[in-house]
Design a protein around this nucleic acid. Structure first.
Lengths: 221, 221
DNA sequence: ATATTAAGTAACTGGTTAGTTACTTATATT
DNA sequence: AATATAAGTAACTAACCAGTTACTTAATAT
């Protein structure tokens, strides 16, 4: 399990740990990666442990050795993927800039993060549906825009008189999130209806612009 | 066999002893209703045939008699629930009215339809995730706003100079749909974060107003 | 009334799947 | 080199579940 001799020593504890520890770490990572793809594709109910082990190229026994059981593996997958949202966070806000610029930059970052992380999008969708069923409890972290300090952005915009003061910030966040997610959660339906590759560079940019226009000015004149 | 089975008391005909056709129709309806609730709750993979039969108060054999197999039952559930969208459709458009009035009325009808039909919302969500997996093919009808002739509304608005002419109608429909659905698909997360009952009359109306404001004017001043 | 047919039941079947057992192989420590 | 421990394997098991079988009961037509 997690038996690194951290502060403890008898003799020199050289970075020899290499081979075995390294390989075990690799196995763990391979399982997590395979599990991500299969849980994202088929959901917590549809995913099969054997298929995950197979795709990871390890024996099922090892999966249980590293992760205990299917539910815990699923939770690890959620944690592992949720952490990815932090890779973009934080640097989106620069209070020196215009609120409009800040909001546009944050939405753009979020939108392209979703475009690049299909597994993440699907995992959040499964979670929204299965909450309280498979994992037994809710994973509120998946309400990710909050983590991006998006509400600070909006507050700043209101204070500086750029954003209408009467809006409900919680609802604004939910709306932005919904607008960005829609393209990717409805991907297959959209693709079959529009008969167009949503993931082309131009199309993605057009979708993003549509969202920004809507957020900034609405649809009406 | 003999005339009357001995020892078996044949009292008055049971109260439910309507004619055969009627009872069979009732059984079918009960199965469909139970299946709707369980497929909506647990999805096509998580739903159990035994549980559906149990909840419908009929024998599993009868479920197979009426619906053939689980997948076909699921398809019937989709069809049955999808048809509900027609109950509101059509009467939303009145080209004599202002486009703004028409759009507001259509969005309001759609929003409250979703609020009143949790099963419908969840079925569309499962479909978006499971498309091409459980049913083998996609159920594009679930892109429901199109059925509501919402695009005609927007076209009318553009022609009459109320709606910006540069917007992509397909994207506008997707956006409206996403904004309305978000409250209900993310219901549990929202409820736990906001610590408020989204389904109170005031809250629903506030959410709808937020959507309408966003659609009409955006968030910025 | 009797034959026919549909509605209904309980118990079973065969395939699947999460999780386990009993064992072998490789690596590190003494 | 011997031993301890972790990584790894194949085959198994118990539970589950979609779908079936063999049968009984009830309603309708003749």
């Amino acid at each position: 399990m997690e038996g690194y001799p951290i502060g403890q020593h008898k003799h020199i504890t050289p970075p020899k740990a290499a081979n075995r520890e390294q390989r075990s770490e690799e196995s763990r990572a391979r399982i997590l990666k395979a599990a991500t793809s299969i849980f994202a594709e088929k959901g917590p109910e549809g995913a099969r442990v054997d298929e995950i082990a197979d795709q990871a190229g390890i024996n099922k026994r090892m999966l249980y050795h590293y992760f205990g059981n299917k539910e815990n593996l699923y939770l690890e997958v959620l944690r592992y993927n949720y952490n990815k949202i932090y890779t973009l966070s934080k640097n989106a806000i620069n209070l020196a800039d215009e609120p409009k610029v800040n909001v546009a930059r944050a939405i753009r970052a979020y939108f392209y993060f979703l475009a690049d992380n299909e597994a993440y999008v699907r995992l959040t969708s499964w979670e929204a549906l299965c909450v309280g069923r498979f994992t037994g409890k809710l994973f509120p972290q998946f309400f990710d825009l909050i983590e991006l300090e998006f509400d600070d952005l909006i507050k700043d915009g209101i204070e500086r008189g750029c954003i209408r003061p009467d809006i409900d910030i919680r609802q604004a966040i939910l709306s932005v999130r919904a607008l960005c997610l829609a393209y990717f959660t409805q991907r297959k339906i959209v693709q079959s209806l529009w008969r167009e590759d949503i993931f082309s560079e131009e199309m993605l940019e057009a979708c993003l612009q549509h969202i920004l226009n809507l957020i900034f000015d609405g649809l009406f004149i």
